[in-house]
Amino acid sequence: MSAFVLSTYFQLRLHRSNGNQFQDLFNELMTRSQGGYVAVKPWGSHGDRGNDGYVPAELRFFQLYAPSSEANPVTSCSKAVGDFSKLEEAYPNLKHYHFVMNDKFQGIPAPVAESLVKLKQDKSTLGDCSPIGAYELRSRFEALSQEQQILIVGDLPAFIPKQLDLSILGAILKELADNDDDLVHLDRIDLPAEFDAKAAFNGFSDAVKSRLTQYARRSHLVDKMLSHRDSSWLQSISEEVKQRYTGTPKGATPDERFWLLSESLIPEFAKAHAHTLKAFREASLLVIAKYFEACDVFENPNSTAAPKAH
């Protein structure tokens, strides 16, 4: 079973987990990934005293929050600070505090992070005092052995539909296509000085150069997606894109090879619906622009290779 498939199923469990389901999933993950972790369940009127789980040897405590609907930042802040007050009263010697929030990969609300920073400033004895969201939980899951991962995600299907692209490249394309940000909005800093030289060296027309420039100004979105992944993903995607570019017809013009590469990155299932196709085409151009800029795909003017003919 591929690492991507297992990671995908873990993400699905996170998306479906609220309340006690999330607490059970978190406890299972921590028990398998953190030595000495102790899960805590509420007990009658005693409750959990603000402690959903802890590592006694480190005096590190975790309080969980998994709202059933989109979280209200004000409610989340109140929960984070209020639970710490209960925890501090019950465990006055605590050293580390983490507010674990199932943000469904939307990111921890800024007010929550800010409230924890202020809490640490007010409590000089605190070491770590930080939020933990879905991205960090996924990273912890992906660091486990495959055997441990399978035990967490449970039963898997006997076969995977052929129309699904379960490669690392497929994963990043899907995340980009699902991204709410405007992929073509130009808001990035200027491109590297050699960008124009490389476009000319590869023999691209002004139209293709303009399209590359348009998406390169947003290529930091790829960095944003990869920042939550293992470092090996960057190289894996680079090699896959380069391999597909190498597979385009050598007799085609530079512009034709560019567009053939873009189309080759789009999974078949995305081509059945116009809006999905558009989202994946923009994602493919974003990935190509990222690796073009990094000199990982196409020809490099600093190499010994001969330039492409216009």
Results as ranks from 00 to 15, higher is better:
30 M>A: 14
36 G>Q: 10
38 V>G: 02
43 W>I: 14
44 G>I: 04
44 G>W: 00
44 G>N: 11
44 G>Q: 10
46 H>T: 09
47 G>L: 05
48 D>P: 00
48 D>H: 01
49 R>L: 08
50 G>Q: 07
51 N>E: 09
54 Y>W: 11
54 Y>A: 02
55 V>Y: 00
56 P>C: 08
57 A>P: 03
58 E>K: 13
60 R>N: 06
64 L>V: 13
64 L>R: 01
64 L>F: 07
64 L>W: 01
66 A>F: 04
69 S>R: 12
69 S>D: 14
70 E>M: 03
76 S>R: 06
77 C>G: 08
79 K>A: 11
80 A>T: 13
83 D>H: 06
84 F>Q: 09
88 E>A: 10
89 E>T: 13
89 E>V: 07
90 A>H: 09
92 P>F: 00
94 L>M: 12
95 K>D: 11
96 H>P: 07
96 H>I: 10
96 H>L: 03
101 M>Y: 04
102 N>L: 01
104 K>C: 07
105 F>N: 08
106 Q>Y: 01
108 I>A: 05
110 A>P: 05
111 P>I: 11
111 P>V: 13
112 V>L: 03
113 A>P: 01
114 E>Y: 00
116 L>G: 06
120 K>C: 05
122 D>A: 07
123 K>N: 15
125 T>A: 05
125 T>R: 06
126 L>Y: 01
126 L>P: 04
127 G>D: 11
131 P>H: 07
137 L>T: 13
137 L>D: 13
137 L>K: 09
137 L>W: 08
137 L>Q: 11
138 R>T: 15
139 S>A: 12
141 F>W: 03
141 F>E: 01
142 E>T: 15
143 A>Q: 14
145 S>G: 14
147 E>A: 14
151 L>Q: 15
151 L>Y: 04
152 I>F: 02
153 V>D: 12
154 G>A: 12
158 A>I: 15
159 F>K: 12
159 F>N: 12
159 F>T: 15
160 I>C: 07
167 S>P: 04
168 I>M: 07
169 L>I: 08
